[in-house]
Design a protein around this nucleic acid. Structure first.
Lengths: 203, 203
DNA sequence: GTATGATTTGACCAAACGGTCAAACACACG
DNA sequence: CGTGTGTTTGACCGTTTGGTCAAATCATAC
């Protein structure tokens, strides 16, 4: 490990390469399935060299995961209580869908972690995530109570948005196997819009 | 390995215990994350004893996975072209939801496999699964074209059902972290029914 | 009870894995 | 150029893992 100075160009480049490679490997194999050697190879480094930049496999995983968590909830944070209810929710759906299309590795990393019981991020889920969801649920409930959108169970509404949008990244192999040549994201935005417009348009 | 005779009572009991334990461990840790020792311990056997009944870790995984695939698509197979369109689809949704509630381990095993690229079941997906989906998509498209349900992209309709229902099993930790004490499945059937009724009821 | 096959296990092996370390190498700066 | 710091690596270590095997134990039919 280098001393406590400003990172050199080499450090910046290599740390970035390692984190990108780790995202590749962890999202495709899970934490236990990934090997340090694999990550090093993908990053174009030797294993000891990689361990010169990060103290352990777990440290790399933590770093990748916390970088992910930082941005993962941005689309929901942006849901504006002052905006038009239906349009706000539709915009949130589209933002989430874009993230699945543009950052599928991040989505799969998250999925891997959750499916296997979220051992490393359970705390964040039941504190930060829960608080954010509670906040936005209150907004949606207010809209619903005011009759500005159809009555809906707000928690399940949010779960449905998560599951529908992330499905195209997390289960991409399955979607592609079923669709064949067709682009999975071709008709998806329109489908989502129709679905939530019909669900939420008041009477 | 015993000779090629009818399985004894001990064989039946132990093979069943192993497969159940394997479902536990594989669904919670993924293939590479699971160890033979773990499975053996959960099954109440020693590792060499377990390997007396199955030749390898991969053989156990294959067996568990193929038993799963056998029944996983039954709810979709049961979609009856002769039934009432909306009620048929709603019934399919409820069957899938029940499977998520009653067989979450199976759902998570499947999710683990797909998220990590489905290396072992890719063939089944692009043959059997695809054929079944194509068949049912045709049914839904016919209903849609006949105006018996609202116009809808049939593939994405099916994907939406998969993702929504399986979400409650695959992402159970997250759902519970957000909902707290509340039973994840309490309001879910009603939410699903409302959603698909609104989406599919012809104008 | 005893013979035969089924079942179980402790001891063991080779490979893979996460991680360490001293030595070699590269590079910037005077 | 040389020297001090940052960087890279081959060799190595202890542990975990999947799997083997011979020997011991158990169940059952005669």
């Amino acid at each position: 490990m280098p001393k406590d100075r400003a990172p050199t160009r080499i450090q910046q480049k290599n740390r970035a390469a390692i984190l990108d490679a780790a995202l590749d490997v962890f999202s495709a194999q899970g934490f236990r399935g990934a090997t340090v050697d694999q990550i090093a190879t993908v990053a174009g480094l030797s294993k000891p060299n990689l361990l010169y930049y990060f103290p352990s496999k777990e440290a790399i995983h933590n770093e990748v995961l916390s970088q992910l968590l930082d941005t993962w909830l941005d689309p929901l944070r942006a849901l504006d209580p002052a905006g038009d209810p239906l349009e706000e929710i539709l915009a949130y759906v589209q933002r989430k869908l874009e993230m699945s299309r543009d950052y599928p590795r991040e989505s799969r990393l998250f999925a891997n972690e959750i499916v296997q019981g979220a051992p490393r991020i359970h705390d964040v889920l039941s504190t930060d995530l829960r608080a954010l969801v509670d906040e936005k649920v209150a907004v949606i409930k207010a809209w619903s109570d005011a009759g500005r959108i159809a009555p809906v169970h707000p928690y399940h509404l949010i779960f449905s948005i998560w599951s529908l949008t992330q499905h195209y990244a997390d289960f991409e192999v399955q979607v592609r196997a079923v669709l064949g040549e067709e682009d999975p994201f071709a008709a998806t935005p329109e489908f989502m819009e129709t679905l939530y417009r019909r669900l939420l348009t008041p009477n």
